[in-house]
Each structure stands twice: as structure tokens, then as C-alpha cells.
Computed example of a mutant assay.
Amino acid sequence: MALSYKTRRRLSLLILLLGLPAYIGAVWFVTSLFDRPSIVVELLIYIVLGILWALPFRAVFRGVGKADPDAPPSSEDR
């Protein structure tokens, strides 16, 4: 089932405003349970986890920054 442009836009805003801070808090909590590794390993962990959170949402974020493809052309586009 394909999501409309407006739905993807609203969902991406919800993910960025609520989901991303919750994910950051969860990662921060889980990493605080272990002894602190060296700075290079810690940086690598945060880089990998920073990329992993976005992979499931690629379809939602794709094309959200562009103009609505379903909108009728305005007088400025002509």
C-alpha cells in the first residue's frame, strides 16, 4: 500500500519529532549500561546506530523535501 505525499510528510515529521528523540534516549540508556569503550569505538557505535535508525523509514522520507507530485500545477510553474 503506497502512502500519499501528505501522509508521508506528516509521518516523517512525527518520526523526526517523537521517534528520533526516543531512539536517541534508548541508545543512550543502553550504552550507559556497559563500561565506556575507547572514544574511537564509541564514535563508531554512534555512527552505526545513527545510520541504522533511518533504514526502516527510507520509504517514508523519500521525496518528502520535493514539491507535491499530486498537486495541480500552479500559475508559477508554467
Rank of each mutant, 00 (worst) to 15 (best):
L44C: 03
V41S: 11
W53F: 15
L14T: 04
A59H: 08
R62F: 12
S38G: 15
I51G: 05
W28Y: 14
M1R: 06
L16G: 03
L55M: 11
P72M: 06
A59I: 06
G63F: 13
R10I: 03
K66E: 09
L11A: 11
G25S: 13
R58M: 15
E76T: 01
P21D: 08
A26N: 00
V30I: 10
L17W: 15
G25M: 13
Y5L: 08
A22G: 14
P56Q: 02
I24K: 01
K6A: 03
P73F: 03
E42G: 08
G65I: 14
V40N: 05
G25Q: 12
S75I: 04
L13T: 03
R9P: 00
S32C: 12
A67W: 04
W28P: 01
D35G: 11
V27A: 06
L20V: 11
I24H: 02
D70N: 13
L55G: 04
Y23M: 04
I39A: 12
L43I: 10
D77V: 00
P73K: 05
F34M: 11
L44A: 07
F34N: 08
I15L: 14
P21C: 10
L52Q: 10
V41T: 14
V40E: 07
L55T: 11
S32E: 12
V60M: 04
P56F: 01
D35T: 11
L49V: 03
L43D: 06
L43E: 05
D35S: 11
L43P: 00
R58G: 15
A67I: 05
D35C: 08
T7C: 05
A22C: 14
P69A: 12
I24W: 04
L3H: 06
D35I: 11
D68W: 09
V64M: 14
P72G: 04
Y46Q: 14
G63V: 13
P56W: 02
S12P: 00
R78F: 14
L44Y: 04
F29L: 15
V64L: 14
A22R: 12
L49F: 05
I47Q: 01
A54T: 11
I24Y: 05
A71R: 02
V27R: 01
P37W: 12
A59V: 07
L44D: 00
M1H: 04
G63N: 12
T31W: 09
V64P: 07
F57K: 02
I51N: 02
D77Y: 01
L43T: 12
Y23V: 02
M1W: 03
R36K: 09
Y46M: 15
